[in-house]
Amino acid sequence: MRGRRQKGAEALAPDPDAPAIAAERLTRAFGDNVAVDGLSFTVAPGELYGLVGPDGAGKTTTLRMVTGLVGPDSGAARVRGLSAESTAAVVRESIGYMPQQYSLYGDLSVDENLTFFARLFGLPKAEARERTAQLLEITRLSRFGDRRADALSGGMYKKLALACALLHRPPVLVLDEPSNGVDPVSRRELWDLLHHFVHGGMAVLLATPYMDEAARCDRVGLLHRGKLLAEGPPEQLIRGFHHATLMLHCDDRAAVEGAIEARPELLALSPHGADLRIVVPRAAVGTFTDLGRRGPARFTVSEVSPDFEDVYLGLLADAEAA
């Protein structure tokens, strides 16, 4: 509202050449707690960008600044060239947003939720009906139109939320942990849907704490304490990883774990069947090989190629140490 009347200088039509989303040194603190700290990134049309980070990294706060729901202390978020703050009303028209929290109406049915949001977006009746039917079809919820939203499974609920966010055919989609609480089968379905829309030219910005999901994005930004640790396509981040991933083949996994877990070089450790998978600085590979030979708990070492989770855990450990 405010934006429409304010600032004649600011263009009010979206700029087709601008990035779909541009975060420009976004900063926001809550009291002393800096949630987002000078964060910059862009998302192009037809790109699926994943903000990956642990709990409290600032993912939600970033997405809320992009959707104009939280004001930045400094910096700006732009959607198709328009400020999410001063031209919030125009920006809202071009964004579909799915919050992290359950936010549809549980006591309304699937159809009623969809109709409600269609009316808020001002869709004409016939068009609303057509799109609702179409979205129910592709999310495979057609049979559940009469079911109350709070009686849906986690996966069905998320698909409904996605359908509600897509009703007005937004060019930009913002999703906060879309597959939180969704079983693996539904999760795959959800991702197939996302890829379908991205291929159609939609820009998608999503936040996730899951590595397997991050690996399926076109580009990811590793977020830690409000700052980007690394950014790029997942394969590129894996290729550029400067630490080593080792598989420790143990006779007694628990004993080995006890012997090495306090070592300062250790960046990440996870059980892998009878083996242990660890991430260590390249310089420490020799130390661990020796350690395995001499005991007290014996193991043999082989280096394996890192996956995205190793990269994530390794970079996170670096950041924590710094």
Binding site: M1, R64, T67, G68, L69, A89, R92, E93, I95, Y97, P99, Q101, Y102, S103, L104, Y105, G106, F117, L120, F121, G122, C164
Partner: peptide, 14 residues
């Protein structure tokens, strides 16, 4: 409390 206000604010409703 239920988070639906966040969803409402993200739509064009005034």
């Amino acid at each position: 409390e239920r988070g639906s206000m966040e969803q409402l604010f993200a739509t064009p409703v005034g």
